[in-house]
Amino acid sequence: MTFTETSLRPRAAGDAPPAIDLRGLHKSFGSVHAVDGIDLAVEPGEVVAFLGPNGAGKTTTIDLLLGLSVPDAGTVQVLGLDPTRAIAEGRVSAVMQTGGLLKDLTVGETVEVTASFFRSARSAAEVLGRAGIADIAGRKVGSCSGGQQQRLRFALALLPDPDLIVLDEPTTGMDVEGRREFWTALRADAARGRTILFATHYLDEADAYADRIVLVSHGRIVADGSAAQVKNLASGRLVSATLTDLTPADEAALRGLPGVQSVELRGDRLLVRTSDSDGVARLLLTSTTATDIEITARGLEDAFLALTSATAGSPS
């Protein structure tokens, strides 16, 4: 089910190195393979969603990408550099999920002190404005809402004018309005040509804000393509029917139908995911003992679940 039509923009010959170049990444914690063989190249200017359920390995991959941890195997290059070098030069910055702010500092002081860590940084007024929080510069971080704190983290990430910004589930815990404002600020920034990679488990965020969606599950990339391609995956339907015995021949016939993505038997309920529900229904009614046939449209969530759970343990 993996498809790879990764590059949305043709890469000019002799151009800059990839913004992100991960090869054969592996990282285990004890017996848990948090990252189990990830290869990913992101070209400059792409806005990539790193999409997957909790525990898929997104945060571990981001830690490796930022040089906060080292892989057991594989290589990480950020803008052609070692990640720690890229951080030291301010070429990459990150917005982490939670924490990372001192509650007793004001918003303005946090920006001011972080700016001082760089040899040259954008002005505090500029980054606060771009993050949409210029009006709360004097407020204590501790009394800011979750959304305001997240936009402060974003403002901090803008300070070195990085080529790449990495965001780890940036809208976790925000209300709908906060999420919308955050993405508006980010999207406006992306329009300037910066490379952005964000992790999320919200499919609608990936769909609305990314040019490219990389689906991860169990430490692997299970799908990688444009938002439109992922949407296509979700355009199919779910055909379910009661079937007491599914013979191997029936199953093979179902799988052989055009458009069928998966065939699954849960108890005596058969579930077929397909882009051609008519064909499946016809086959079920004519050549099997299936009864109680139901056809339902699949949402994005269902496609997401299908992709991220189908690969559990079965190498694709």
Binding site: A88, R119, A191, R192
Partner: peptide, 25 residues
């Protein structure tokens, strides 16, 4: 719509050219 226009604009938008001094302090 925001997403679409932003994507379209990105093809032509140029990053500011004045390169900041990136050597660590």
């Amino acid at each position: 719509e925001t997403a679409t226009t932003a994507t379209a604009a990105r093809g032509t938008a140029q990053r500011p050219t004045a390169a900041p001094d990136r050597t660590p302090r």
